[in-house]
């Protein structure tokens, strides 16, 4: 059913291999020194080079915000669009050109506030595009207002007495609309980020990746308590398909289900009874439960929450077109002009 290809691999005989440097555009990168976006940019460029992706068939599309400057720095086709609307341009482009590999770069404000509607409908349709949502829990480009993922009570320029908004969870949203590939990674772990990006690239359908990204100016250290090396073992849970869920130093702790509730249990040397990760589960229940786990009660899960096969929007569109053409025959413009009934004036 799925006619489109996510990636067009470089035929080695025809062209020389591409390197990470080939994906670097000539434009000066203008993020703040120390911004987490640098690490993500480098990881994406390296991942595409590692997969020998063809630059000319790759398009990066973004909205507005710090993260949305991303396409300018990629030596591929790129489109820096308007606030929140990147998924709509990506959808239109994918419909017109299913053979292209299309990546959307967005942020917590761009993707979940102004662009929330497009995000959910794009994921719902399972358009074969990759969406990277850089979550820094703050508005950076507009200089420090709270975002839809900011924690309640956060004091920002627009909330001097603390925000009274309840935050939204990007992964809960993606799973709620039946996302076929849902993952989380962090700008502080290049290896993990490379693994997740590669998995996303190879997924047929909408691949949604939340990337914890540090805003060094307006929300520095937002994820420090989870991702910093010293605390990571106890505060982060790295998911692996088919493996029991363990964390802590040397896997000393694990997750066991008590009914539908996850419990943290002592796991040194014993994995039986622990919850085993199943990213391919047809129902998103387990993935959703994982997406609800947060500090301080639980470790924060990283990795691929869900990866299922499902016909893509663009694939079904092309298939329907072929079926209709087989049934009705190739279209004829003169017949179209004639319409259902004609008469002749002599």
């Amino acid at each position: 059913m799925n006619e489109s290809t996510t990636l067009t691999l470089q035929p080695p005989a025809l062209t020389k291999p591409v390197s990470k440097a080939d994906f670097v555009s000539g434009q000066d990168v203008r993020w703040c020194p120390g911004c987490g976006d640098y690490a993500i940019l480098a990881a994406v460029q390296k991942a595409l080079a590692d997969m020998q992706v063809q630059r000319q068939n790759t398009v990066f599309i973004s909205g507005i915000g710090c993260s949305s400057r991303f396409p300018y720095y990629m030596n591929t086709y790129g489109f820096h669009s308007i606030h929140g609307r990147a998924p709509t341009l990506a959808t239109g482009l994918k419909i017109a050109r299913p053979e292209l590999s299309i990546w959307v770069v967005t942020g917590d404000g761009d993707g979940l506030s102004i662009g929330g509607n497009h995000l959910i409908h794009t994921i719902r349709r399972n358009v074969d595009i990759k969406i990277l949502l850089f979550n820094n829990q703050i508005y950076g480009l507009t200089k420090g207002q709270y975002s839809p993922t900011s924690e309640q009570g956060k004091k920002t320029k627009s909330t001097p007495f603390g925000t009274i908004d309840y935050p939204i969870s990007p992964l809960c949203v993606a799973l709620g609309v039946e996302g076929s590939f849902v993952a989380r990674t962090t700008d502080t772990d290049l290896k993990h980020m490379a693994m997740v990006l590669e998995r996303a690239a190879h997924h047929k359908g909408t691949a949604f990746v939340e990337i914890y990204q540090n805003c060094v100016i307006f929300n520095d250290g937002a994820f420090k308590g989870i991702t910093e090396k010293s605390v990571r073992p106890d505060h982060a849970l790295f998911l692996e398909h088919g493996k029991p869920m363990t964390f802590g130093k040397d896997g000393s702790k694990g997750i066991r289900l008590d009914g539908v509730h996850p419990n943290i249990v002592e796991a040194t040397g014993k994995s039986e009874g622990l919850c085993v990760h199943d990213e391919k589960a047809p129902e998103p229940t387990l993935a959703y439960m994982l997406s609800r786990m947060r500090n301080p009660d639980y470790p924060v899960p990283f990795g691929v929450f869900r990866a299922i096969e499902r016909p893509t929007y663009d694939g079904m569109l092309v298939a329907q077109e072929q079926q209709a053409t087989a049934k009705m025959g190739a279209g004829n413009l003169q017949n179209l002009l004639r319409g259902p009934e004609t008469w002749e004036v002599k």
Binding site: L89, A90, L93, A96
Partner: peptide
């Protein structure tokens, strides 16, 4: 937005 995306394509 989709119309602009398709035009780009």
């Amino acid at each position: 937005g989709a119309t602009i995306g398709a035009a780009f394509g």
